[in-house]
């Protein structure tokens, strides 16, 4: 990717340039039913560097999914721009995979075939090698034995893990994860969190990870982006500064963890209260 500097002009980023850069992004939705325009996010600036794990926290409806969709190439910016690897995003690409908040599994496909969907359009996959990759991804998310189940036969948490397997099987450079552990029970969640952390550490992927859990945001993130609503925008960005690997037990007694948790708790509490007041008036 970095060898094409000659033909992409003087704007080619240096090695330290961010992999994802969101510049003054505003997204408004046109609501056909009412004819009104709804501004989901306004003036968002964000830079994510290669290999970084960025977690995103914020009240419901503040535009987290919207920003992620613009990076994924699924939603066009109303104004501002998003660059990935120095190039403006014009649509989805194999360098980015998404774990969807609502799973978005194909109900007519088995678990195996759903995971395979992540690879299907990659034409270079001729031989039989892809089978092993699909199987590997399924085992990584702990779904061995469920290869031939249909999504409707799985619990919400299991479906979510199928979505995770589908995203990682494609081995994208960037993983965009929208509450990938939202429907997983506490125990599985902890295990999955460790697995995700190990996976990311091993492959050096760049991750944007939306969550509603403050603990999760701290445990996984190099940086935490806190959103606010009305209008949706970034409220603050915090470096976690915790050493890796972080095991849940050791981190939870770390004073830095406790400090972060209290801070984030207050920040979100204030947001939630404001949102409730704004919603009520």
């Amino acid at each position: 990717m970095t060898t094409t500097a000659a033909d992409s002009g003087p704007a080619e980023p240096a090695a330290s340039a961010p992999l994802i850069s969101v510049r003054n992004l505003t997204v408004s939705y046109h609501v056909a039913r009412t004819g009104a325009t709804l501004t989901a996010v306004e003036g968002v600036d964000l830079e994510v560097h290669e290999g970084e794990f960025v977690t995103v926290l914020g009240p419901s409806g503040c535009g987290k999914t919207t920003v992620m969709n613009v990076i994924a190439g699924l939603v066009k910016p109303t104004s501002g721009e998003v660059l990935v690897d120095g190039r403006p995003v014009t649509g989805p690409g194999p360098d980015r995979a998404v774990v969807f908040q609502d799973y978005a599994l194909l109900p007519w496909r088995t678990v195996f075939d759903n995971v395979k969907f992540g690879l299907e359009m990659q034409k270079h996959l001729k031989g039989d090698g892809w089978r092993d990759r699909v199987q590997e991804a399924i085992e990584l998310v702990g779904l061995r034995g469920f290869e031939s189940s249909y999504p409707k036969e799985l619990s919400g948490g299991m479906q979510q893990r199928v979505g995770l397997a589908r995203a990682i099987v494609a081995e994208p450079r960037i993983l965009l994860m929208d509450e990938p552990l939202g429907a997983v029970d506490a125990l599985t969640r902890e295990v999955m969190r460790d697995e995700i952390e190990k996976l990311i550490a091993a492959t050096g992927k760049t991750v944007l990870f939306i969550t509603h859990s403050i603990e999760e945001a701290i445990l996984l993130g190099d940086r935490i982006v806190v959103f606010k609503s009305h209008p949706g925008a970034i409220k603050e960005v915090i470096e976690t500064g915790l050493a890796r690997p972080r095991s849940e037990r050791s981190v939870q007694s770390d004073p830095r963890f406790l400090e972060l948790r209290d801070h984030l708790w207050d920040a979100l509490q204030a947001e939630a209260t404001q949102a409730a007041v704004a919603g009520g008036s």
Binding site: V98, F100, W108, E120
Partner: peptide, 29 residues
């Protein structure tokens, strides 16, 4: 057809005719 299925298709490179064939048609069947 759920919008997010179409999104999933697009994210994983399924466009145009393939989108109709692999997502829209089976979802409608």
């Amino acid at each position: 057809v759920h919008a997010s299925l179409v999104s999933a298709g697009r994210v994983y490179g399924v466009n145009g005719v393939a989108l109709g064939w692999k997502v829209i048609l089976p979802a409608t069947l």
